[in-house]
């Protein structure tokens, strides 16, 4: 049985008086790398914490690998890497991983495997405190990889790393995915979108696009992922504005009609209707040339 990796229905999360996520519906299939992108403060971490089961959920349901999120069975099947490297500074890399392996109940040999896979063999006996930021991040990733979980939830694993290290990490992610695991990777570096198989764009606690890197570029006629996201966000804002304006006057001759029409009805949430309806706007050809 394959089933979905993650299913959410009407997921609502409140923090104090703020509603961080309001009625989110989401279905993510198994396999592949799913990018969760969005500006900081858009609710990425909160959603990930809900998936791992450490977040208090105020409404709706969320299930992971067919079980309710956070259930005891899932603790062996889901690996979680928090935003800051959550490892013990005063232990060596190997001692950190040995401890997490014993907690996870996996054999010692797995420690060597994850050390090798994350390229930490040279630092294995170094105290975590003496590692560079990128190395500490990889220890944290290695801990999440222990026991080869079916789902890996990685919260901004590449934040603050130079392009070479980022590229190395994405190489590791790809290898894990090739072995059949599902990875949910958050980032606010939009250009990392092209490394994913599937993309979710979050903004203010809502998923405003559910697409693939190719569709994203094609539908927005943008040259880069970053530009594409800016256009989607622009269009989103315009849609909101124009719907309020439309309520006042039926004759809404919007100046930004091209981009608004392109994405007005959140077509990205369902992939097939993306390329329809065909656009006849004169502006479209200008955009396409760029």
């Amino acid at each position: 049985m394959m089933g979905n990796a993650i299913e959410a229905q009407g997921l609502t999360i409140r923090r104090g008086r703020n509603t961080v996520i309001d009625g989110l519906d989401l279905t993510l299939p198994r396999g592949a790398i799913i990018g969760l992108l969005g500006p900081s403060g858009s609710g990425k971490t909160t959603l990930m914490r809900a998936i791992v089961g450490v977040q208090i959920v105020s409404g709706g349901t969320i299930s992971v690998l067919g079980e309710p999120a956070g259930s005891a069975l899932l603790r062996h099947r889901v690996g979680y890497m928090t935003q800051l490297p959550s490892i013990y500074d005063d232990l060596s890399v190997r001692a950190n991983l040995r401890y997490f392996a014993r907690v996870q109940g996996v054999p010692k040999s797995d420690v060597d495997r994850v050390i090798e896979r994350t390229g930490l063999t040279g630092q294995a006996d170094q105290l975590a405190r003496t590692l560079s930021g990128g190395q500490a991040n990889r220890v944290s990733l290695a801990a999440a990889m222990l026991g080869s979980p079916e789902l890996l939830v990685l919260d901004e694993p590449t934040v603050g790393l130079d392009p070479v290290l980022r590229s190395d990490l994405w190489g590791i992610f790809r290898r894990i995915a090739d072995e059949g695991a599902t990875l949910l990777v958050s980032s606010h570096v939009m250009d990392e979108a092209t490394r994913c198989d599937r993309l979710l764009l979050m903004r203010e606690g809502a998923v405003i696009a559910d697409t693939t890197p190719r569709e994203l570029l094609e539908s927005t006629r943008a040259a880069s992922a970053e530009e594409a996201f800016l256009r989607i966000i622009e269009a989103e804002t315009d849609t909101r504005d124009s719907t309020t304006r439309a309520a006042k006057s039926t004759n809404s001759a919007s100046t930004n009609s091209a981009s608004t029409r392109l994405l007005a009805t959140r077509p990205l949430a369902t992939s097939p209707p993306l390329r329809s309806p065909p656009l006849r706007s004169p502006r479209r050809s200008k955009r396409a040339k760029r």
């Binding site: 089961g53 450490v54 005891a72 979680y80 800051l84 959550s86 997490f100």
Partner: peptide
């Protein structure tokens, strides 16, 4: 504060 407790509690501890 370091997040290790959160990690441990997402594990079977």
């Amino acid at each position: 504060r370091s997040g290790t407790l959160e990690r441990l509690l997402s594990m079977p501890l």
